[in-house]
Design a protein around this nucleic acid. Structure first.
Length: 645
DNA sequence: ATCTTACCCGCCCTCTGCTGGCCCAGC
DNA sequence: AGCTGGGCCAGCAGAGGGCGGGTAAGAT
């Protein structure tokens, strides 16, 4: 005969209830690992009582503590549940609780010894099952996970008849001077709401299987709330849950099992049990491929399917297949049924998934929960923030497979490839004019700039015409293009530009407003003075000479040579010179390169007679004739050097 | 125990639109 | 030869579709 000794010191206490002979159905079933798992063996009332007992503590939950061996006979199987009871010492005048021992003796008698101040009562629960309730106080330090191992309950498993137990229960309950738990439930629940600093423990002690001598003590519920000197994190919704739970229970119409940790409720015991496991870290199912663990075998199987590529759920309308049925349903909504159950209350948007609606709603609310850590940008979803971060990192993950140019976004690369490397590039025709633009967005800019109505009057710079659309103005002004609108008052001269007329009029007046500061020579035009100064007073000036590759005629300006080439024609040089889409400088460079290929001399040094395909002095410098370059200048409007002249 | 359903988060993609720098033709 | 305006182009952000995969709870 062994006894249980529990040190109980605080006001908090726990009840231990022992069920009578368990029906076979209610017993644990042995699993492969030989460990007995608890089956639902209690009545709803008992379970509900358990449910009210308190919240769980993850670190302690589900620990099974082995008790002393029980009798090998089936009739001797007992379940002893150490369960929290939300009583206060004040309510039951329980004080100075300390040590208790339970001794179940031969003949079914249960001896309870109070090694210190304490309390034990037995009660008869529903379905005539014997329940023993032991009220103990919990020493704070005692009920940590490790210290539970210290706590030992020793039950003497003798033959106990249910009737005898019942009698004994009644006797002990009476002797304890307590009423049944059920009669106090409402009061307990009210007290529970007030007891924010209590510690609750729920232990289930269960016998072994047939022929087993073992009894397991299962810690299935431990509610530890904030201690005075040891704050413990408790979900904020616990009190809320309790409140809601109480409301439901007082209705009494239907049994509900309420989680004390969260707001979960269920009418099913199995669901409740399964739910309670979610408050633990227990994940016994291990993936042998990646060592990830899962709570259930189903989760593990689905996970393993992702490794193996097994996709049992096949779409009947296409060849897609999925790991889970949920994925298939979602796919069918997206692709085939177009069912969109999640509808926005602010617009017509509807989505297949709730998360999409949630994301969409942010476009109404303006909420941007994802803040960039390096700038003020915040995005409405995680992907945009991730994409944005590339602007800080400089990462360009997308590469053009043709030219290997890199891009930050896939769309940008796609457009690049389309525009640069595809032959059939879609073009966008402006609906208002003949303009064709490669990109739609640029067409939009075009329309905005040129075809948008302007309230302000847009006046023609050549006449009095007025327009309200820029495109119309431009088209109108082009009609003035070839007009020689400026006519000389003194002669028949006419020109297109006002500045030309100004210069012309000076031929009549003799005015020469531009004076050379070096030699006082005067000029009618600023440009003429500029040319003069360069030619006679600027030692560093080396005039360019553009030489026709066909007839060797030289030109001081590339544009002049270009005009000449149009008439003269010269293979590559002409082709290069007529290249469209190039800048003036680029055209010059291309023409020079072509000339060099043709062996054409564009310029000569006036001193050393060196000829070059390039007109720039750097060519002579590069040839090592530095001395010549400083004083040399190339023939202006000619193709031989000064010495020859 | 298993299937089904729902929810959630994450990732990637596409389409879209705006912006500003660059290039170039025209003036 | 300089200025200007318009097209080209890449960068970047907004919005939304579709799927992968984990988790939990109801139903069977």
């Amino acid at each position: 005969m062994a006894a249980t000794e529990i040190s109980v010191l605080s006001e908090q206490f726990t009840k231990i209830k022992e069920l009578e002979l368990m029906p076979e159905k209610g017993l644990k079933e042995e699993e492969e690992d030989g460990v007995y798992r608890e089956k639902d063996h209690r009545s709803p009332g008992e379970l509900e009582a358990e449910c009210t007992a308190g919240a769980l503590q993850d670190s302690v939950l589900e620990e099974e503590l082995e008790l002393v061996p029980a009798s090998s006979e089936e009739s001797e199987k007992h379940i002893l549940t150490l369960q929290t009871a939300p009583f206060t010492s004040e309510a039951f005048e329980l004080q100075d609780l300390s040590l208790l021992s339970i001794q179940q003796q031969e003949g079914g008698q249960v001896m309870v010894q109070q090694a210190g101040p304490g309390l034990l009562w037995l009660e008869e629960g529903p379905q005539q099952s014997l329940q023993q309730y032991l009220a103990i106080s919990i020493q704070e330090e005692l009920y940590s996970l490790q210290e539970m191992e210290v706590l030992q309950l020793h039950l003497l498993e003798d033959n106990v008849l249910a009737s005898e137990e019942s009698k004994l229960a009644g006797s002990l309950a009476e002797s304890a001077g307590l009423t049944k738990l059920q009669e106090r439930q409402e009061k307990e629940q009210l007290l529970l709401a007030e007891r924010t600093k209590e510690q609750f423990l729920h232990l289930g002690a269960m016998p072994g299987d047939k022929g087993s001598d073992e009894i397991f003590l299962k810690i299935s519920n431990l509610n530890v709330e904030e201690q005075e000197d040891q704050p413990i994190a408790v979900p904020a919704n616990v009190e809320k849950a309790k409140s809601a739970k109480n409301q439901r229970q007082t209705k009494g119409a239907k049994r509900t099992f309420c989680c004390d940790v969260c707001v979960f409720t269920s009418s099913r015991m199995s669901s409740f049990h399964r739910h309670m496991k979610t408050h633990t870290s227990e994940k016994p199912h291990l993936c042998h491929l990646c060592l990830k663990t899962f709570r259930t075998a189903t989760l593990l199987r689905n996970h393993v399917n992702t490794h193996t590529g097994t996709r049992p759920y096949k779409c009947s309308d296409c060849n897609m297949a999925f790991v889970t049925s949920g994925e298939l349903v979602r796919h069918r909504r997206y692709k085939h049924t177009h069912e969109k159950p999640f509808k926005c209350s602010m617009c017509k948007y509807a989505s297949v998934e709730a998360s999409k609606l949630k994301r969409h709603v942010r476009s109404h609310t303006g909420e941007r929960p994802f803040q960039c850590c390096q700038c003020s940008y915040a995005s409405r979803d995680t992907y945009k923030l991730k994409r944005h971060m590339r602007t800080h990192s400089g990462e360009k993950p997308y590469e053009c497979h043709v030219c290997h140019a890199r891009f930050t976004q896939s769309g940008t690369m796609k457009i690049h490839t389309q525009q640069k490397h595809n032959e059939n590039v879609p073009k966008h025709q402006c609906p208002h004019c003949a303009t064709i633009i490669a990109r739609k967005s640029d067409l939009r800019v075009h329309i905005r700039n040129l075809h948008t109505y302007s309230a302000a009057e847009l006046k023609c710079r050549y006449c009095s015409a007025v327009f309200h659309e820029r495109y119309a103005l431009i088209q109108h002004q082009k009609t003035h293009k070839n007009e020689k609108r400026f006519k000389c008052e003194h002669c028949s001269y006419a020109c297109k530009q006002a500045r030309h007329m100004t210069a012309h009029v000076r031929t009549h007046t003799g005015e020469k407003p531009f004076t050379c500061l070096s030699c006082n020579k005067c000029f009618r035009q600023k440009q003429l003075l500029k040319v003069h100064f360069r030619k006679y007073h600027d030692a560093s000036f080396i005039p360019a000479v553009y030489k026709c590759p066909k007839c060797d005629k030289g030109f001081s300006r590339w544009s002049n040579m270009h005009r000449h080439l149009e008439k003269c024609g010269s293979g590559q040089a002409k082709a290069a010179a007529s290249g469209k889409g190039r800048t003036r400088k680029r055209k010059q460079t291309v023409a020079k390169e072509a000339a060099r290929r043709d062996g054409v001399i564009l310029a000569h040094c006036n001193l050393c007679l060196l000829g070059s395909g390039d007109s720039h002095a750097s060519v002579f410098q590069g040839a090592g004739i530095a001395g010549a370059c400083h004083h040399a200048w190339l023939i202006f409007m000619g193709f031989y050097h000064l010495a020859q002249a």
